[in-house]
């Protein structure tokens, strides 16, 4: 087994997901199946292989520094579940800094 339920709990916290305990159990099982399958990659020696992040070798794509009109604030806020005084509103944040 690659990962236990405690690891699944930790990963769920990182991903901001809440899993019921039966869900957690099932998830642990399924993730282990997939990770076992992924172990197949270890058959390959990739020591000297460069990783591919992009399928095409494009580079240096830029924008000029010219201001364009922003969204009307009412439109920017239109989809917000909660808003107040021109701002998005969230449950009180206890400052932890970032």
């Amino acid at each position: 087994m690659k990962i236990d339920q405690a690891t699944v709990e930790k990963v769920a916290m990182l991903a901001r997901l809440e899993l019921a305990s039966d869900e957690e159990e099932k998830m642990t099982e399924q993730l282990n199946d997939i990770l076992d399958y992924a172990d197949k990659l270890n058959e390959l020696d990739t020591e000297d292989v460069k990783p591919t992040a992009h399928a095409l070798p494009i580079k240096n794509v830029f924008r000029e520094d010219v201001v364009e009109e922003s969204l009307d604030r009412d439109i920017a806020l239109k989809n917000a579940p909660e808003k107040e005084s021109g701002s998005f509103k969230v449950p009180k944040v206890i400052e932890t800094g970032e």
Binding site: E84, S87, F88, V90, P91, V93
Partner: peptide, 15 residues
């Protein structure tokens, strides 16, 4: 994040 809003049950976000 603005914490000192008129209400204390929420924080406001300015992007």
């Amino acid at each position: 994040l603005v914490h000192d809003g008129t209400t204390d049950e929420g924080s406001l976000v300015d992007y």
